[in-house]
Measured scan of single mutants.
Amino acid sequence: DNLVIALHSYEPSHDGDLGFEKGEQLRILEQSGEWWKAQSLTTGQEGFIPFNFVAKAN
């Protein structure tokens, strides 16, 4: 599964970004460059996240 966990909170700064809290679990939908499309397992919302704010969940 493409599950990751947030290492830091992220406040969206552009339309289409997905905000999240530290410790939140996300599902990665697309990996492309430094911005990945993800879905929050907490809110169900989708958007782009900075890849270096998350780590693979085990």
Rank of each mutant, 00 (worst) to 15 (best):
V4F: 13
W35R: 15
G33D: 05
P12H: 01
E11N: 10
A57H: 13
K37Q: 06
I5G: 04
Q31S: 14
A55L: 06
E46P: 02
P12T: 05
A55C: 11
F53R: 10
A55P: 01
G16P: 00
D1Y: 09
V54N: 01
S40T: 05
W35Y: 11
H14K: 15
F20M: 08
R27D: 06
G33L: 02
S32K: 15
F20T: 06
S40W: 00
V4W: 15
I5K: 06
L7V: 10
Q31G: 12
L29A: 04
S40Y: 01
Q25R: 14
F53M: 11
G23T: 01
E34L: 09
Q25S: 13
R27V: 13
Y10K: 11
E21Y: 06
G19S: 12
A55K: 11
F20Q: 02
L18F: 06
L3W: 09
Q31D: 14
H8C: 11
T43L: 01
L29I: 07
W35F: 11
L26F: 08
F48C: 10
P50I: 01
L41N: 04
F51Y: 13
G19D: 03
S9V: 03
K56A: 14
A55R: 14
F48Y: 14
L18S: 01
T43Q: 05
A6T: 11
Q45Y: 07
P12S: 07
G44T: 04
N2K: 09
N2W: 05
N52Y: 07
Q39H: 07
K22M: 05
Q45D: 09
Q25V: 14
P50Y: 00
L26C: 00
D15L: 12
T42L: 11
H14T: 10
G19R: 11
A57I: 14
Y10T: 04
E24L: 00
S9P: 10
Q31I: 04
D15A: 13
G44Y: 05
A55S: 14
T43N: 08
G23P: 00
A6R: 03
D1G: 11
Y10E: 00
A57S: 12
E46Q: 13
H14W: 07
G23R: 00
S40M: 01
G19H: 07
G44M: 08
Q45M: 12
L18G: 03
L18R: 01
Q45T: 11
S32F: 06
E46L: 10
P50A: 00
S32G: 12
A55Q: 15
L29E: 06
F20D: 01
W35P: 06
A38E: 00
K37M: 07
I49V: 12
F51P: 15
P12I: 05
E30C: 08
S40D: 04
H14D: 09
N2V: 01
F51R: 15
L29T: 08
W36I: 04
E24D: 12
I5A: 05
L41T: 11
H8V: 09
D1N: 11
Q31N: 13
S40K: 12
N52W: 08
H14S: 13
E11K: 15
V4H: 12
S40I: 03
K56T: 12
Y10C: 06
L18H: 03
S32C: 14
L29W: 01
A57N: 04
E46M: 13
F51K: 15
A55G: 14
K22Y: 06
G16R: 10
F20Y: 02
H14P: 02
E46S: 14
A38R: 00
G16E: 08
P50V: 00
G47Y: 01
F20W: 00
P50W: 03
Q25D: 07
G47C: 00
K37H: 06
D15T: 11
T43F: 00
G19Y: 05
N2F: 15
Q39R: 14
A55I: 12
H14G: 13
S40L: 05
R27Y: 10
V54A: 03
I28T: 03
E24N: 04
D17K: 15
E11I: 10
S13E: 12
G16V: 07
V54T: 06
S13R: 13
T42Q: 13
L41D: 03
G16M: 08
T43I: 00
G33P: 05
V4A: 15
S13K: 15
S40E: 02
L26W: 01
I49P: 02
H14M: 08
W36E: 01
L18I: 10
E21M: 11
G16T: 11
V54W: 02
E21A: 13
L41H: 02
Q39P: 01
N52I: 01
F53K: 07
E24H: 02
A55V: 14
I28R: 01
D15C: 10
L26P: 01
F20K: 03
N52E: 14
I49M: 03
S9N: 15
S9C: 08
Q45F: 07
N2G: 06
E24M: 03
V54C: 07
F20S: 00
G47V: 02
P50D: 03
L41C: 12
P12R: 03
H14R: 15
E46D: 05
E24C: 04
H8T: 14
F20L: 06
R27P: 01
E24R: 01
F20H: 01
W36D: 04
L18D: 02
L41W: 00
E30F: 06
G44D: 08
E24V: 01
D1W: 07
G19W: 02
L7N: 04
L29P: 00
E24Y: 02
L26H: 03
A38H: 00
P50R: 03
K22Q: 07
E21C: 09
H14A: 14
A6H: 02
Q25Y: 13
L3F: 07
L7S: 09
Q25W: 10
F48R: 14
E21D: 09
D15M: 09
P12K: 05
L7G: 05
W35M: 14
T43H: 04
E34K: 14
H8M: 09
G44W: 05
A6D: 01
Q39L: 07
F20P: 02
Q31H: 07
V54Y: 02
F53P: 01
H14Q: 12
Q25E: 14
L7W: 03
D1T: 07
W35V: 12
K56H: 14
